[in-house]
Simulated scan of single mutants.
Amino acid sequence: MEIFDITLPIHPEMLHWGRKPEVEIVESLANGDASNVTRWRLGAHTGTHVDAPAHFVDGATPIDKVSLHSLVGPAIVVDMTHVTGDITVEDLTAAGVSGQRRVLFKTTNSGGPLKETDRAPSWVGLSPAAAKALIDDGVELVGIDYLTIESHTLTDTWDAHHALLGAGVLILENADLDAVPPGDYELVCLPAKLVDADGSFTRAILIKRDPA
């Protein structure tokens, strides 16, 4: 069995949309306290995280009530490193993702913008038409290797987010797929159980099991 950790490390200088994480030392052995204790200030969408439907739809499912069956199970990592711009319906057709419940897109983001500490001016996202095609095909979770699955040209209207989350499809963002070969895996993605939250940071892994 091979395990790929696709989770970004969380630290104060990391790539982040907006305010970066902050760490406060509450107690320390060096100062004579009984133990080391830190307090972290970070957003629900820090690092590798899952967007719940409540992120864009008032009254929709929050992160603590999303189905674990959507977050754990067979997944495909799709090679989209040839895409420059947005992933299109034609790209989906060529990749043969029809019938997949959990789809993770590996793009040039993983080896480029995802490794920077500041947001890039452009990145590979998912076109609204491709998002709707995935919904029509019955997908339950869609992942990408950047801060957002949205096209860098549509962060004023958030069309892909409205489509996916409005249909109850979960979005996994900031998945580090740089070292992950395209193919079939088992996804284990467990966001923190933040009550009534719009999303949550998560530990996510992909498992490749040896043939029986």
Rank of each mutant, 00 (worst) to 15 (best):
M1P: 14
M1F: 11
M1S: 13
E2T: 15
I3R: 13
F4S: 11
D5Q: 14
I6P: 00
I6A: 08
I6R: 10
T7C: 03
T7E: 03
L8T: 06
P9Q: 08
P12G: 09
M14G: 08
H16Q: 15
H16M: 15
W17V: 13
V23T: 11
V26C: 14
E27L: 15
S28L: 13
S28H: 12
L29D: 10
N36M: 10
V37A: 14
T38I: 15
W40E: 04
G43M: 08
G43N: 15
G43F: 13
H45E: 13
H45V: 11
H49W: 12
H49E: 08
V50M: 04
V57N: 10
A60F: 07
I63E: 03
D64T: 12
D64Q: 09
K65S: 15
V66Q: 05
V66S: 06
S67D: 13
L68N: 15
L68R: 14
S70V: 07
V72H: 06
G73I: 11
P74Y: 02
P74G: 06
P74W: 02
I76C: 12
D79V: 11
T81L: 05
T81F: 00
V83S: 07
V83I: 11
I87L: 09
T88S: 13
T88F: 04
E90F: 11
E90M: 12
A94I: 01
A95L: 14
G96T: 07
G96A: 11
G96E: 02
V97M: 02
S98E: 14
G99C: 06
V103R: 05
T108K: 14
T108H: 07
S110F: 00
G111C: 08
P113Y: 00
P113E: 00
L114E: 02
K115M: 08
T117G: 01
D118T: 04
A120S: 05
P121M: 05
V124E: 01
G125A: 02
L126D: 01
A130I: 11
K132A: 15
L134A: 07
I135G: 06
D136A: 15
D136Y: 09
D137H: 10
G138A: 10
V139R: 07
V139H: 07
E140A: 12
L141Y: 09
V142I: 09
I144E: 00
D145E: 09
T148Q: 01
E150L: 06
S151I: 03
S151G: 00
H152M: 00
H152L: 01
T153P: 02
L154C: 07
L154Q: 10
T155P: 03
T155F: 08
D159R: 12
D159N: 12
H162E: 04
A163Y: 08
A163P: 00
A163L: 09
L164Y: 03
L165F: 01
L165S: 08
A167K: 07
A167L: 03
G168H: 05
G168A: 04
I171E: 03
L172C: 03
L172S: 05
A175D: 01
D176W: 04
A179V: 09
V180N: 04
Y185A: 06
L187Y: 04
L187C: 03
V188Y: 09
A192H: 13
K193C: 11
V195W: 09
A197G: 07
A197C: 12
A197H: 12
A204C: 10
I205R: 15
I205G: 10
L206A: 10
I207V: 14
K208G: 05
A212M: 14
A212D: 11
A212C: 13
